[in-house]
Amino acid sequence: MNLDLRPVPVGALLREWRAARRLSQLDLALDAEISARHLSCIETGKAQPSRPLLMRLADALDMPLRERNALLHAAGYAAAIPETRLDTPAMEQVNKAIAFILAQQEPYPAFLMNRHWDILAANNAAQRVNGFLLDGRASPHANMLRHAFDPADLRPRIANWHDLAGTLIRHLHALVAGSPTDAKARALLDEVLAFPGVPPRWRVRDLDTAPAPLLTTEFVHRGVTLRFFSTITTFGTPRDITIDELHIECCFPMDEATAQFCRQLAGA
C-alpha cells in the first residue's frame, strides 16, 4: 500500500482555495494587494511567500482559523492560531458561557456542537426529548447529522424529514465546498449520502434552492407532535480554533402544544 504523506505545497493549497472561492489570480491578487505575477509565482513554487503575506491571502480567501494554520504549515511556518481543549483552565469562562446558555434554554432542547455537527454537550431538556422520542434507549450516534439520517436513530420520528435533511445536506455541501481541505467533512458527506432513502440528486450541490429562513423540525411519536425551530449562537471574533468551530443550537417551540409537552417532561 503506497501512501503519499508528503505535505501539500503552499502554492497548490492556495490554488485549491482560490478555485473553491471561484476567484481568478487577478481577483485574489487585488484583494491581497499584491501583483498577479507575484501570486502566480507563489502558486507555481517559484516564489516563497512571507508569513504576513500568507495571512493577507488567508484573509482574502476568508479561510477558517484551522485552515490558516495549515496554510502556514505548508509554507514551513509555525502555526499562528492556538487550539485549546475545552476541558482546560484557559477555557473556564467559555465553558461558563456555554453552560449558562444551555441552562437558560430549559425546558427546551439546546446542543453544543463543532463544525462537523458532533454533539459536545446538551442540556437536560435535549436528553428528555430524545429519551421520549427513542423510548428511553440510547442514541447510536453523537452527531446531529447521523441522528437525522440514520433510520436506526431519530429519522423515523421526523415528520418533515425530506425538508430537514435537504437543508442539512445543503449546509454540509457548503462546508465541503468552502473548506476544500477538510477531509472529515467530505467523509461525513459521503457517509450520510450512503444512508438508505437519500435521493441521488442530493449528491450534487444545489446552488439554485434558497435555504429556508429558519430550520424547523417536526417530530411525531406515540400520538404526540413536537414542532421546533432552531437558532444558532456562535462566539464573535474568536482567537482560538476550538472557539471558532463551536456553535450552540437552541430549539424553540413553534406552538403551545410543544411548549406544554416540554414543560410536562421537565416537571416529570
Rank of each mutant, 00 (worst) to 15 (best):
residue 104 Q to W: 01
residue 105 Q to L: 00
residue 106 E to W: 00
residue 108 Y to P: 09
residue 109 P to Y: 03
residue 109 P to L: 01
residue 109 P to K: 05
residue 111 F to I: 06
residue 113 M to D: 01
residue 113 M to I: 04
residue 116 H to T: 08
residue 118 D to R: 04
residue 121 A to Q: 14
residue 122 A to W: 05
residue 123 N to W: 06
residue 123 N to D: 11
residue 125 A to G: 02
residue 126 A to T: 05
residue 128 R to S: 08
residue 128 R to T: 05
residue 129 V to H: 11
residue 129 V to D: 10
residue 130 N to E: 14
residue 133 L to D: 11
residue 134 L to I: 10
residue 134 L to S: 15
residue 134 L to P: 11
residue 138 A to W: 02
residue 143 N to C: 09
residue 143 N to A: 12
residue 143 N to H: 12
residue 144 M to D: 08
residue 145 L to D: 10
residue 145 L to E: 08
residue 147 H to D: 14
residue 148 A to W: 05
residue 149 F to V: 07
residue 150 D to C: 08
residue 151 P to C: 08
residue 151 P to H: 10
residue 154 L to K: 11
residue 155 R to E: 03
residue 155 R to G: 01
residue 156 P to S: 05
residue 156 P to G: 03
residue 157 R to S: 08
residue 157 R to M: 04
residue 158 I to E: 11
residue 159 A to Q: 14
residue 160 N to Y: 08
residue 162 H to W: 00
residue 163 D to C: 02
residue 163 D to T: 08
residue 165 A to W: 05
residue 166 G to S: 04
residue 166 G to I: 02
residue 166 G to Q: 04
residue 167 T to E: 15
residue 167 T to R: 12
residue 168 L to K: 12
residue 170 R to A: 15
residue 171 H to Y: 12
residue 171 H to R: 15
residue 171 H to A: 13
residue 172 L to P: 10
residue 173 H to W: 12
residue 173 H to M: 12
residue 176 V to D: 02
residue 178 G to N: 04
residue 180 P to S: 10
residue 180 P to Q: 11
residue 181 T to K: 02
residue 182 D to S: 06
residue 182 D to G: 07
residue 183 A to I: 02
residue 185 A to M: 00
residue 185 A to W: 00
residue 186 R to T: 07
residue 187 A to M: 08
residue 188 L to V: 07
residue 188 L to K: 03
residue 188 L to M: 13
residue 189 L to Q: 07
residue 191 E to Q: 11
residue 193 L to C: 07
residue 195 F to N: 02
residue 196 P to L: 05
residue 196 P to N: 05
residue 197 G to M: 01
residue 197 G to I: 01
residue 198 V to R: 05
residue 198 V to L: 08
residue 199 P to M: 08
residue 199 P to H: 10
residue 201 R to M: 08
residue 201 R to V: 05
residue 203 R to E: 14
residue 205 R to G: 06
residue 205 R to P: 02
residue 207 L to G: 06
residue 207 L to S: 13
residue 209 T to H: 06
residue 209 T to I: 02
residue 214 L to G: 07
residue 218 E to S: 13
residue 218 E to T: 15
residue 219 F to H: 09
residue 219 F to D: 05
residue 220 V to P: 00
residue 220 V to C: 09
residue 222 R to C: 11
residue 222 R to K: 14
residue 228 F to M: 05
residue 228 F to R: 09
residue 228 F to V: 03
residue 229 F to T: 14
residue 230 S to I: 02
residue 231 T to M: 15
residue 231 T to G: 15
residue 232 I to R: 13
residue 232 I to S: 14
residue 234 T to C: 09
residue 235 F to S: 11
residue 235 F to Y: 13
residue 235 F to E: 12
residue 238 P to I: 09
residue 238 P to F: 07
residue 239 R to H: 15
residue 239 R to F: 06
residue 240 D to Y: 03
residue 240 D to S: 12
residue 241 I to N: 07
residue 241 I to P: 03
residue 241 I to D: 03
residue 241 I to V: 14
residue 241 I to W: 02
residue 244 D to T: 02
residue 245 E to A: 11
residue 248 I to V: 11
residue 248 I to E: 08
